[in-house]
Design a protein around this nucleic acid. Structure first.
Lengths: 346, 346
DNA sequence: GGCCCTTGTTAAATCGTTCCAATCTCCCTA
DNA sequence: TAGGGAGATTGGAACGATTTAACAAGGGCC
């Protein structure tokens, strides 16, 4: 077998072929203004002919910084995180960085090991969805001179950029839709107080309720945010008295379960009761009763994280830290009807 | 603000502190047998004290190969691929490689661009789920001296390693379960002939049918492998005459839809009809009728891909290309009952 | 004509490792 | 005691780029 391995061209090869020094080639590529027009032209044609591309490793070594961005995620299996990864991958590709995937699997030690690894390879920066709110480990990275962007968490803009979804707004949107559909008495089926997202979403719903006179907002907290918990809540609701007009479940699994529990007990969705979920998981669109829910621009989170990072790395002085907040959007499906043509708006 | 950026230790710092040359430090770390026990001891303690770790970029430059593995995937949004990524990330972490995430988004040009990028940075190797069967672009990578492992596709072991799931076995397992449950007349609801997986799964089902006397296996091909198509198939089935005892849907979306279509028309699952799906998507476990289905060890695919790659890179001569095939497993849930205690087996 | 300034180009140092070949030590043997 | 050899250590040249400082060459000015 003829197995000719063609060595990629080095800067010296280009220099020799163009009859200039390596320094000039580097100048043509990086600071064209320092080089005469005809030299530049000649060099460029050789670059094209030899298909020359600078070796990123060598550049990284010399510049003290690799053209690499790390993304540290708790769990790739969760579509929320894999969608962040997807957005980050797109943005990194567009900016010409390579993205190092770090999946910590909910293990703080492994997360820490990834931080060290990224520091060792002098990554240009890191986008991280941290496992815990403990900022100590994060700031150590920053001390090593590696810029950091927080995703799905916020932080003071003194310390760096962050990107997140506005859960309060999401909760408000969901509740508003129910009220606009004619509901007066809305129940929020919510996860525990310890989960920031749950607290925010409920707070948003309360805001919506406050602006409508004569409405009522109740809350019930479930043990787990799973389909099973939703089924149980649905059954309880169907059997109980004082049933609300509509339910806002703070995630889609709960909502799917709730619908199922209600249907089992003969309560029709959306006939007897409107239901809104949160998250727009795949299951929302394919559920028996397609779910009206709130979609988060998750890919945008990853994308913006990388954008901000690249800005920080490349603009250096001019860069200003920023906390970018994304607004979720309502996706209307069958489980909660479109707003009746309300008298108030037209 | 006191912003002391502590420079990481270099090999020279270690050498100086231990009173030896950089070469000796390198030897201690890479070829301990060449160095006396006491020197090694001294150097090692300094390494620990200074927290020294070799700069991967410099190592890569010197060795002509970075400690980086690329993973090229069509679409991170698809859990099949993100689970591959997860397995690959775990394995890469264990082997001490960093994993560069390349999401081609079903765009061949972008896939090609990633190949070039990985070649430029002298990646140690690439795990790829290729968009097309066109091996030209792949072999070009190999010509650049970069080992390649194919995932979810097979190739001649002359050209490299590959990892895949045995869809024939999966189809057989699914059908066997139905026959073991007492079915004599099984319908396969399948995707198009153009999809390799569909063909294989059906073939497996046929094998299972052949080994049982007095059984019948039919097939119906649907336009798309979606819930909607499944619903339609379910309704048609319920209304039609000559209804089978059991149905094997070659993916879970079809199966979920089928169950729904059947139930709408008053056919009970598993009461009147057993249903088996394929894939074990999230939706399988949370569907109204929890789905008996076939689980593929997808994470193992990514994990094994990286393992094989690392073996090829590190064992060099001794490495033998390998086509590793993984066996899917049946997950029994409600939609198809556990086998009756058959007279034949006991 | 000598001096200085500008413009374009380049030699050489540097980044942090690895590895080959050379050197140095020490001990054993003749 | 000189010579030889084994074992441990080290100097220095890569690897492939960037960048600083220096150097020619040409032009304007006194």
């Amino acid at each position: 077998m003829s197995c000719v391995v063609s060595r990629p061209a080095r800067i010296q090869d280009v220099a020799a072929a163009a009859g200039v020094s390596p320094a000039t080639v580097s100048n043509v590529l990086n600071r064209p203004e320092r080089v005469s027009a005809q030299t530049a032209e000649r060099v460029r044609s050789v670059v094209a002919a030899l298909d020359y591309v600078a070796h990123p490793g060598a550049v990284g070594l010399r510049n003290g910084r690799a053209s690499t961005i790390g993304i540290v995620l708790p769990d790739l299996t969760n579509t929320f995180y894999s969608r962040i990864a997807r957005g980050a991958a797109d943005a990194a590709f567009e900016h010409g960085y390579s993205l190092v995937l770090c999946h910590s699997g909910d293990d703080p030690d492994r997360e820490q090991a990834y931080f060290s690894m990224l520091a060792e390879q002098r990554a240009a920066g890191v986008v991280v969805v941290p496992l815990t709110a403990d900022t100590g480990r994060l700031s150590r990275l920053r001390q090593r001179g590696i810029p950091l962007v927080l995703a799905d968490r916020t932080m003071s803009t003194d310390d760096g950029c962050s990107v997140a979804v506005d859960d309060v707004s999401g909760g408000r949107t969901a509740a508003q839709h129910l009220f606009d559909g004619g509901a007066r008495d809305v129940l929020v089926v919510n996860g525990g107080r310890a989960i920031r997202q749950c607290v925010d979403r409920y707070q948003g719903a309360r805001q919506a309720a406050r602006t409508r006179r004569g409405t009522r907002l109740r809350q019930v907290v479930v043990q787990a945010m799973t389909v099973e918990a939703g089924v149980e809540a649905g059954r309880a609701l169907a059997r109980g008295t004082d049933r609300p007009d509509a339910v806002f479940c703070t995630n889609d699994l709960l909502a799917v379960g709730l619908c199922r529990g209600l249907l089992e007990e003969g309560v029709a969705v959306p006939g007897d009761l409107h239901v809104v979920g949160f998250g727009d998981l795949d299951v929302a669109s394919i559920a028996t009763v397609p779910l009206t829910t709130v979609r988060q621009p998750v890919e945008e989170l990853g994308r913006a994280g990388v954008d901000l990072l690249v800005d920080e790395v490349e603009a250096r002085e001019e860069h200003e830290h920023e906390a970018r907040i994304f607004m979720p959007q309502l996706v209307v499906r069958a489980s909660a009807a479109a707003p009746a043509v309300a008298a108030s708006t037209s």
